[in-house]
Every structure is written in C-alpha cells, then in structure tokens.
Design a protein around this nucleic acid. Structure first.
Lengths: 185, 185, 185, 185
DNA sequence: TTTT
DNA sequence: TTTT
C-alpha cells in the first residue's frame, strides 16, 4: 500500500465503557471503544483546579477487536495507535452527519494494554476494573500488544475485508526478520 | 499543565485550500486549514488502482496561525502535530452536531512546512503552490518550524509567556555536540 | 525555538532500575532511567517462542526529573516522549565514544506514569514495584503527567536554559487558554 | 508479533549523503542513510543565532531500502518512522562499542519522501538534490510512501491483498467517503 | 536491568 | 462514560 501522507493518532487513556463487539458478514470482528484523555490545570484567575476530558471513538478490527473484547473493560488503560477516519452518514431526518473515529487495524494499528493485569492470579475477574488495568481473558492468550506484523490472521478490516479465519496459517507468521543475526552491520 | 493521558495526532499532507485566518477578541490569530492524506493501492480483485483521500480539519492558534497564514497555500505540504478535539454545536434545525478537529497550539503543537520554498528567490509567489512547497513570506522570517519550547517571539500562545531575557545563562546554553560540522560518524 | 525537522521518540516500557537523580550546578535536576521495550514472536522455523528486549537510556530534566525521582521505581511502566540526542565523549583511553539518549525536557518532553498507583492507600511503598505501577510520593504531588506547557518552573534544560528557579512564579502558570469558551468556532 | 511496549521514532529531516545500499545473503536490500534534524534559536544572552544539528543513523530494509536507493539523494527530505535499536560491536582494540540506529522495516517502518520530485520531468537527475526533493527513479515507480503493509514478502496486506478473490466483495471494500471530490466540509 |  |  502506497500513501502520500501520514495519518497517525496516538492515544493513552481509559475506557469509558466496556467494549462493544460486533461481527461483520465476513466473520471479522469489530470492537468499538471510547477512550478518555484528560488534562487538568490550575486556573490562573480563579485559582481553582480545572479539568477537561476529551472522548475518542476508537474502532478496532480483526484480531485487535477480539483481544479488546476479551481483555478490555470499562476503566482499562490503553495505548492506541491508529488513523483518523471521518465517515459520512445520514440521520433519520436524512441529513448528512459526520463522525470521526480512530481506526485501528491491519499493520497501521496498535493496541497495547497498560498497567498490568488486575484482579489477582487465577481469580475470576469479577466485573469492574480498577486502576486502569486489564482483566482475565475469557480464553487463554499470551500476548498483550496486538498490532503490526502479526495480524496475519486478522480477518476483519474496514476498507478491506480479509481472509477467512479458517485460512491455513500461512508462512508469514513470523518475525519481521532475523534481526539478531542477519542484519549486516 | 498536568494530564492523565496522551492525545496526539501526527499528519503529513497537503492543504486543500489556502488557510483561513481569523482573529479572536484577545487579538490572537486562528488559522483553519484542511489537510489531505491519501492512500492508494491496487485492488486485488479488479486489479485497478484505487485511491482514498482523508481530509482533516486543522486549527492552528497564535504564532502558528500567523505563520500558516503567511507561508502556507493551497497545495502546500505540511507536517502537523496536534491534539484531537471534538466540539459540539447546533445546526439551524437546533440539532446537535459534532465536529472533530486537530488543534495545534501552545507547546503541544507543531507545524512544519515541508519541501522547501517554492517559486525562486525574491520572485512574487503568484498564487498557486507547486509540489507541496511553501511561499514567499509577506514579511521576513527565518524559521520554518514553529512550536514547542521556543516561541519567544510567539506572542499569542496558550501558556506562552517566556523566560526573562536577563536570566544568567548557565553552561548548558549550548549544544552537546559539534554541529555545522561533518556528520560525526 | 525554530527547527527544521522533527526528532521525536515515543516509548512505552518498564524501568530496569530505580531512577538516578543528580543536580546540576544551576540546581536543576536530571534523572537517568533505563526503559525496556520488548517484542516476542514465535520462530517460524523452530516453532519456539522468542523474545528480544531493547534497552533505552532516557534523561529527564527539570521538573520531569524530580517527578521521576519521586514516583518512578524499578519496574514502573512509563510513557515517554522525547528526542534523540547523541553525545560524544572520551573513554579512559582517550577514544571517542558515542552515546545516544532520549532527552525529555522542556516542552518537547512528556513523561506519563502508567498503570495507576501501586501499594495501596497510605501504606509505605516498601521497595519494589509490581505490575509496572508507580509509588507513593516522597512529598505531595497532584499531577501525573508532567511535560509540555507546564514546565514554567523547570529550570534546568539541556540546550536551552530557562528562567531561574527563584523567579517569582509569573503569570504564565496557567492553562493553555480557556478553550472551553474562547475557541472561536 | 506481540510486544509489551512501544518503541517508535519519528523523524523529518534531510539526508547528509546519498544512501548506501547493500544486499544480504538472503537477497534482501539494506539501505543506510544519515538524517539531519536541526534546531535553531536566538541565544537570549548573547543575542546571536545558534543552531544545533542532530544526525541520525537510519537503516531501511527490504522494499523500503530499494526505494531509498532509487529515489533518495543527499539533501532529500524524508519522513521516517522506525524503531530504536542499539547494537554492540567491538572495535579493533577489542573494546565494546554501542551504536544506536533507527531501524525501518516490516510493518513498523515508514519512509515517505517529502517535497515533491525535483529536477523536472524526464531530465537527468544530475547528482545533487535541491530543496529536499527527490529524484528521478532508475526505474518507474508510482508510489511515494513505502512502508507498512507493502513489504513484498508480506503477503497479507491491509487494503491490498487480503481476502481471496472469490470473497463476495462486501461493502467495506471501499472508501467510506467520497474522494477525488471536493473537500467534504 | 524491566515486564509478560 | 474513564481516570487522578
């Protein structure tokens, strides 16, 4: 994929709600999350503490979406790397509306859970997250950061639906390159 | 300013139009620009070349806005670093609308003109930009990237105010390495 | 400060050791930390799990250094935003050596503690950090992310010395701008 | 590839020399370039203009390396996205030396030529670049930004390869918005 | 030297 | 709607 330009968003923030997971006709997963980033400062006039929170719509696709659905919960702290995408839609009155989202998919996207696993070892996660950590998986998983390079199996992509999940795990399930021994410098 | 989170956008793209400059009651400048980032790829089904352009609304404040107004033109290529901000407004039917912009201001923001000055030395810029370059200033300027740390001359900035000139210049007022020299490796 | 170029490093990782704090003649603090970022993958040939850790030298200046010294410990997870700087020095044999560091200072720099406070409320921190969190302060502090816009008081800066520490807390100890009401759009 | 951490470098700067291209035993290309980023400021004590240039070693791999070799020249302006890597080696005296480079490869890496093509159409490039532009290719090429998703050996690509030809071309196999059109706001 |  |  060639591009003339850079379109990159980096967020570190907390989820305002549990992820919402959906599946596309192709079988690919989509997770929608809202991420809060906030700033606070002391007002120089009144001297009072002020705070402003920005809410971001984030859409994760494919494997990233599945991991988000499994591990992220309301309050979880995440690192997100994706790209801005504004889509046009029409409301019930037939009027044009625009929604801007951070799309996290394919090799552009990174989703990294921050703060370590919460809830103790082996214990059931029990609903709510605290301190921004992330929870027990519904099913085993060993990775924490999904994104880039590993989405071979990432089926669901927004503007480009992928191979079906049942595709036979091809040969590119590999590290970028044997950079321990091959890099010639 | 403290914050709990990271909210960062990085763009490299071209302006879709000349900047629109306005002034706030405080006298501070605001420049609105639209920046295009595009991706192209070959459709693997049809084999045809496809392209998708994403348009970004960018609002620059203070000195950055002034520089944008002076140097940027339709077609100019820029590097932008700012933060996402969604604001709510009401249309004529009284319905809520949301607009997401990249806000470039204060020490968060960076605007860097790319591609070198176009149009030759001293010649009038004459309207249109080519190849993403930037134009003749209305008034002399030696800098190319405004933002962060240095906005001594940058009057209208959010947290702008600077150090006093008379401060006693400690020993770190110098680069750690040779510069203006050869590449040191 | 004008620049022709962008020099930015973004890290999310864990500290390999407690921060080392020093003070410059000017009184400004410097904190040196080492941050690990790691990647793991399954070797496509042997099928075994492989891991590679990269260690980064990070130097924080001014207020950022003080906060790092207060809150960060071995194992703490941090978000770092700074710039690359390679400095030349000579070893005991008089040979040139080069060291590359991520410098986090002034308005370029961001240091954000991740994962929430560890160790319970009010309890003494007691040495070791767990799960990448951060500890009890030695002295009260309300902010979590220091950097950009707020380093008014950050005295010691490497290549750009600021106002004196004893400067009388000027008017710029303020938010970027009343962006709730002033932004004219 | 999973990771626990983020290791990202973003540079915008100019090449100090023509790229050096080599080939690995595997046939893969490696391009080494040096990129300058500079800052300038007015010394508040002496009042004189000062400048500091930082030089970065950048290693590009695979297709990115080939494109760099073809199009980049001394003076070319580039956007680089890669990761930090420090390697240890021994000098002739058997002493340990460390070199830190920005590695641009696989899906982590982005290399974007900035500033438009220089030198006019069809004219021989003739050595030196001006204004940071990039040159005539040795062989036709239509893309400008190589990176992510497009590394030849990486079959699974975002909007490129992916789904099998027989996949029923769902509605997301298309841009969400009008493009090649006017700016939609 | 960290983390998982 | 989150976090501190």
């Amino acid at each position: 994929m060639a591009s003339r330009g850079v379109n990159k968003v980096i967020l570190v923030g907390n989820l305002g709600n549990d992820p919402e997971i959906r599946y596309m006709p192709s079988g690919g997963a989509v997770a929608n999350i809202t991420v809060a980033t906030s700033e606070s400062w002391r007002d120089k006039n009144t001297g009072e503490q002020r705070e402003k929170t920005e809410w971001h719509r984030v859409a994760l696709f494919g494997k990233l979406a599945e991991v988000a659905g499994e591990y992220l919960r309301k309050g979880s702290q995440v690192y997100i790397e994706g790209q801005l995408q504004t889509r046009k839609w029409q409301n019930q009155q037939g009027q044009d509306q625009y929604t801007t989202e951070i799309v996290v998919q394919g090799f552009n996207g990174v989703m990294q859970m921050l703060g370590g696993r919460q809830g103790g070892q082996g214990a059931p996660m029990g609903g709510q997250q605290q301190q921004g950590g992330w929870g027990q998986p519904q099913q085993p998983a060993q990775q924490q950061n999904y994104g880039q390079q590993n989405n071979n199996f990432a089926p669901a992509q927004q503007s480009a639906p992928q191979q079906q999940p049942q595709s036979p795990a091809p040969q590119y399930n590999e590290p970028p390159m044997d950079f321990d021994d091959d890099i010639p410098f």
